[in-house]
Structure formats: structure tokens, C-alpha cells
């Protein structure tokens, strides 16, 4: 056994393992490409104007659209944000401004826990606390479930962004005689606002794709519903019920819905990314 042989073997192993790592990237990217291609191809061929303007047709009839589901999703996201953004921002502000307190660590821990709870379990919670007392499925129940998933995301970004605000800004405010509350709301939060907004967009992109927590909270609805105490259709639940139905026409609509959903999520994520870019440039990085 010559030393040359040994080195050759080591180099061979190195090349093989590097190749295996490249293969790992392929293993991830090929399905990703397949998913995107199928969504775009099947989605585009099934998408028409009716999809955005019409209600679902009764089962068996061709045509119809998901207008009410798109509006329903928008309603759910808006309601959830109305609750989750103030709660998340204030909780994040507390954690950042009162670092080291026991409650601050408890909030961080709670946010981590909330972040990890399976969304279906959040749905059960919303069912027990909203649907059961109201005796019906409703947009409120769905929004509560989504808001619970949003709070930890908003709280965490708020905390990070508030920590980035220079101490000098706070001291300047204090020196001018402002109270701590005034400093927080007129100086610190506005300075952190672009970052917080990014966090909110990221959170919206995440909950927009949620299905499981809506199945037995906002449920589904084949018609328009302007009220928030009624069952409400959503894009994701509608895609689900169409996907598992036996009809080709509904499958087509499910693909169209998936395309719309993914485009919406990507658009929101892209917007968030643009904000981040601007932030980084402002920070001089």
C-alpha cells in the first residue's frame, strides 16, 4: 500500500461526498420545479375571468369560480391582522424594552411554543373557545385561529427591530423631557416601523396558505357572506374540497386556486423582501 494510493482514495471519497451534496440540492430542486411547473401549467389553463368573479356552481355543473373564497380569505386575513398586529407589536415592544425581566423571557418562550404548535391544534382551540359558545362556524373563529399563528411572528420581528433602534434616539427623547411612553410610541416604534411591516407581511404570507385551522372554524360557504359571524369560504379550504372531489372540472378549479394562492403568497413575500433590502441599505450594509 503506497502513500499515493491512500491519498488518491481520500481525494476520491472527498469528490464522492461533494457530489452527494450536489445531489441533495437536486433532490430538493427537482420536486420544487415540478410543483411550480404543474401549478403554472395546470393553473393557467384552468384560470379564466369567471374564476375571479363568479360563485361556485352546484356540484356537477361546469363553470363557476371562487370569487367568494378569494374575498373570504381576504376577510379572514384582515380580521386576523387586526387582532394579531397590535398584540404582537406590543408584546414584542415589551420584550425588547424590558429585556432581562422574567416576564420578557416568558413571552419569548410562549412565542416559541405558539410558533411550534401544529396549526390543526390551534383550530381545535378556536373551535372550543369561539365556535362552541357561538353555536356556529364563523369568520371570527377562523380569524382567531389565524391570529394565534400570527402573534408570535409579529412579536419576534418587533422585538428584533426595536432592539436595532439606536439607544441615542431614546436618550435624545428623554433629554427633551419626553416620558418613556412617548419615546416608545413617537420615536422607537416609528423608527422600527419598516422592519415591523416586513414582519407583518411575512406573517400574512404564512397564514394565507393555512388550511387546517380553518376546516372547523370558518368552515366553508358556497355563497357570498358579508357578515363575520357566518361560515366563510376561503381559498385554501375551497382548494381542499375540490382536490378531494371526484370531478375533473373541480380539479381544474383547484389548480387555478393553487396558482392564485401561490402567486399571492409570492407577491407578499417579495414585497417583504423589498422592504428588507431598503432597510439594509438604510442601515448602510
Amino acid at each position: 500500500m503506497t502513500p499515493g494510493w491512500h491519498l488518491r482514495r481520500r481525494k476520491l471519497v472527498s469528490a464522492a461526498m461533494t457530489g452527494a451534496c450536489a445531489l441533495a440540492v437536486l433532490v430538493a430542486l427537482v420536486p420544487l420545479a415540478s410543483i411550480l411547473v404543474f401549478i403554472v401549467a395546470r393553473g393557467l389553463s384552468s384560470l379564466d375571468w369567471d374564476f375571479f368573479t363568479k360563485l361556485p356552481k352546484p356540484t356537477g355543473e361546469a363553470g363557476g369560480g371562487m370569487a367568494n373564497a378569494i374575498a373570504g380569505s381576504a376577510k379572514l386575513i384582515l380580521l386576523a391582522s387586526l387582532v394579531a398586529v397590535p398584540v404582537g407589536v406590543l408584546a414584542g415592544l415589551y420584550v425588547a424594552e424590558y429585556r432581562g425581566r422574567r416576564l420578557a423571557s416568558a413571552v419569548r418562550f410562549a412565542a416559541d411554543v405558539l410558533n411550534g404548535i401544529p396549526s390543526i391544534v390551534v383550530g381545535i382551540f378556536a373551535y372550543g373557545t369561539v365556535v362552541l359558545p357561538m353555536h356556529r362556524f364563523s369568520a371570527i373563529a377562523g380569524a382567531v385561529a389565524l391570529a394565534i399563528m400570527m402573534v408570535p411572528l409579529v412579536a419576534r420581528t418587533t422585538e428584533e427591530m426595536v432592539l436595532l433602534v439606536p439607544e441615542m434616539l431614546r436618550e435624545g427623547g428623554m433629554a427633551l423631557g419626553a416620558t418613556r411612553t412617548q419615546v416608545a410610541f413617537s420615536l422607537v416604534l416609528p423608527a422600527a416601523l419598516p422592519g415591523i411591516l416586513t414582519g407583518v407581511l411575512v406573517a400574512v404570507a404564512r397564514i394565507a396558505g393555512e388550511t387546517a385551522p380553518l376546516l372547523f372554524t370558518s368552515f366553508n360557504n358556497q355563497f357570498w357572506s358579508s357578515r363575520i359571524d357566518q361560515p366563510t369560504a376561503s381559498l385554501t379550504v375551497q382548494i381542499y374540497s375540490y382536490a378531494i372531489s371526484p370531478y375533473d372540472d373541480l380539479h381544474r378549479q383547484a389548480w387555478a386556486g393553487a396558482l392564485v394562492l401561490v402567486v399571492l403568497i409570492l407577491a407578499v413575500s417579495l414585497l417583504a423582501r423589498l422592504f428588507t433590502r431598503r432597510l439594509e441599505r438604510m442601515a448602510g450594509r
Partner: peptide, 17 residues
């Protein structure tokens, strides 16, 4: 300049979480 208001308000929400 700490009037305690900030802590009171935000900690209430923090407890909520």
C-alpha cells in the same frame, strides 16, 4: 421620565401572550 405607563400597557399584552 419613566411614567410607568409603557410598562403597564405592554406588560398587560405580554401577559396575554
Amino acid at each position: 421620565g419613566d411614567d410607568g405607563g409603557l410598562e403597564l400597557g405592554t406588560s398587560a399584552v405580554a401577559v396575554l401572550v
